[in-house]
Simulated scan of single mutants.
Amino acid sequence: MVPGFSFSRRRFSDLSEQEVLALAISNEEDDARIYRQYAERLREEYPSSAKVFDEMAAEEDNHRKWLIDEHERRFGTVIPLVRREHVAGYFQRQPVWMIENLGLERMRAQAREMERQAEQFYRKAADRSSDAATRKLLGDLAAAEAGHNDVAGQLERKYLSGEAREQEDEAAHRQFVLTWVQPGLAGLMDGSVSTLAPIFATAFATKDPQTTLLVGLAAAVGAGISMGFTEAASDDGELSGRGSPVKRGVASGLMTTLGGLGHALPYLISDFWTATIIAIIVVFVELWAIVWIQNKYMATPFFRATFQVVLGGALVFAAGVLIGGG
């Protein structure tokens, strides 16, 4: 059998009642550990939210103790090793580092999804139990998981007053802007604007879509690599609070490349004027997208952003056309 594929796993319906209890115990252990990791990750910047996850972890610990007591009553002290990955078609938890990197709101959303999945599991497990006490316990746990969103809400009201919640949400938004939006926007602007001149100069100088495409690809990829490394190397984020240099470098590099590719890829079309008209339309869309992002995330007044971006892009575009046409 090949590890990791469903045919090497047991179906939930094939598990014994002892194995179902063992699976429930390992689930609670894993979920408590995940909540504690969330809390530890948030403790410095979002202490109130960290307390919410600490108490949710403690609640999972209580569930685990009840399940262990029930297992000892029915089957003894030796608990089989049964985990989620051993059961075919069973829900899986996303790696913690993936959720951590997506910020506070993503952690909250993941916690709600974890509770929903746990409720479904306990309802199915209760239906399969032949022991009255075990069935009652599993049903009670299903009800507890169903009510965890209310518990989470109570904990948030306890630790996250209106002011504390507002401060944490504001800090999370600010971190998102500094780590992802700002470098990504800088990259998109650089890729969209700085590559206009070489791409359209080549286009009007050669009237050859294939040559223009090659120059455009080289300009976009080269600019993306340059911007990504520059952003990552310029600031380690420790003093500025702008976050991981790797994340900022990735955001800046990818958006720079995307901005350049937008008006290079139309030259895959063999007809020069068709490709050029489409490329000009793409440039128009790119510039207005930059204006929208600046206005929404950077609080730049709409007309000022329009003047800066559209006028700047038009000047660079005109320079490319004049140089190529001359």
Rank of each mutant, 00 (worst) to 15 (best):
S49C: 10
A126D: 09
K247E: 10
V221P: 06
E100C: 09
P3W: 08
F5C: 13
L137V: 06
A39P: 10
A50I: 00
Q117S: 11
A143Y: 10
R116V: 15
G312T: 12
S161N: 08
W273S: 15
V20N: 00
S161W: 01
A275R: 04
T256G: 07
M107H: 04
A22V: 02
L178F: 05
I278S: 06
Q110M: 05
T202N: 05
E70R: 14
D127S: 14
A299C: 06
E55D: 15
A142W: 04
G260N: 08
F5A: 06
D169V: 08
E72N: 10
E70F: 00
G184T: 09
A203C: 08
I68M: 09
A305D: 08
G249F: 02
R11F: 13
F5I: 15
D271P: 07
Y159H: 15
I225R: 01
V96E: 09
R128Q: 11
S234G: 14
L258Q: 05
Q210V: 11
E119L: 06
N295D: 06
T77C: 11
F303W: 13
D150T: 13
E168I: 02
V20I: 15
E105S: 11
G253I: 06
A50L: 00
D150F: 01
E119F: 05
F303Y: 09
V285M: 14
F302V: 10
P95G: 01
A220F: 06
D169A: 11
I34F: 10
E119N: 08
A133N: 09
Q294L: 12
G216H: 07
L160A: 00
G191P: 06
L261M: 11
F91V: 10
V87G: 07
D31A: 15
K136W: 05
A118H: 12
D140Q: 07
D150H: 11
S48R: 12
K124P: 08
V250F: 14
P183W: 00
R242S: 14
A289G: 14
